[in-house]
């Protein structure tokens, strides 16, 4: 289904469904997670995109937001996850348009779970600010961010894990990795943990680096051109995000789209 209206209210059905956003205007998406739903959201064109999703008790929502807009899109996203509900959000950002994204996930009820992941392959500006807040006991907030920054690309990631006072037994873990092929190294990751309770588990890991010259030499010595090495290394870097998705259909879409785009961008 193609979304062209300014405001749309959705209660995704159980199982898989997909929507395309294709408009010059701004779009506001009001989502209610009620069942066990897998949603594929493809942004072909839009100005600003606002997503407000509320997951009801014990609901399960897996959302893949695939942005293939050629122009700049601002995303403002709020997710509220209630008791025992489970949210998976994955972002695919491998197209030419600039992206500015602010995502706020709040785990409101006991036992709530959220996993936010992103795969970025860029020759342009991609800015992210993702906050996952545990605001109830025994909740789990995870983040996995993988990015490959090609020549001319710029990547900014603020990854914030918050556990509020009283949210005992909660977990907040995040991993962010960025691989730069550009000598300028325009990549920045700021991992943050803001913890206000004692009985919690939290961790962050961030790595940011250029491709190792020795690795490149090793691969080239087997006959691969620099572009082919870039493609193989990028595939290796971004594919782990596919495994964060459970739904086989969404997995397949993400894997195929990533492979196609990597092959295209890295052969330039």
């Amino acid at each position: 289904m193609v979304i062209t209206e300014k405001v749309i209210t959705l209660i995704p059905e159980a199982g898989y469904s997909s929507y395309d956003i294709d408009t010059e205007e701004s779009v506001s998406l009001q989502l209610t997670g009620r069942y066990d739903s897998d949603l594929f959201l493809r942004i072909r064109k839009a100005a600003d995109v606002t997503i407000h999703a509320a997951l009801e008790e014990s609901a399960k929502l897996t959302l893949l937001v695939w942005n293939e807009a050629g122009s700049e899109v601002h995303f403002d996203e709020i997710y509220e996850v209630n008791r025992n509900a489970s949210l998976h959000v994955s972002y695919g950002e491998v197209f030419q348009g600039k992206t500015v994204r602010c995502t706020k996930v709040t785990l409101l009820g006991e036992g709530a779970f959220a996993d936010v992941s992103s795969a970025v392959l860029t020759q342009t500006d991609k800015q992210f600010e993702i906050t996952v807040t545990s605001d109830a006991p025994n909740t789990t907030g995870l983040m996995h961010n993988y990015s490959v920054v090609l020549a001319g690309g710029k990547y900014d990631m603020d990854a914030v894990g918050v556990i509020t006072k009283g949210s005992h037994g909660s977990q907040s873990h995040q991993t962010s990795r960025s691989l730069c092929f550009d000598a300028e190294m325009n990549s920045r990751i700021i991992p943050k943990l803001i913890i206000d309770d004692n009985d919690v588990q939290a961790s962050h890991a961030a790595s940011l680096g250029r491709v190792d010259e020795e690795q490149l030499y090793y691969m080239q010595s087997r006959g691969l051109s620099e572009q082919q090495c870039t493609a193989l290394l990028s595939t290796g870097y971004l594919m782990p995000i596919v495994d964060t998705i459970e739904n086989e259909e969404l997995k397949g879409i993400l894997r195929a789209e990533l492979e196609e785009k990597i092959a295209e961008l890295c052969s330039i």
Partner: peptide
């Protein structure tokens, strides 16, 4: 020999 995490032996060899 270098270690290349993320790239499988088979993908690498097939490409080569």
């Amino acid at each position: 020999p270098q270690e290349i995490p993320g790239v499988t032996n088979s993908d690498f060899l097939r490409a080569a």
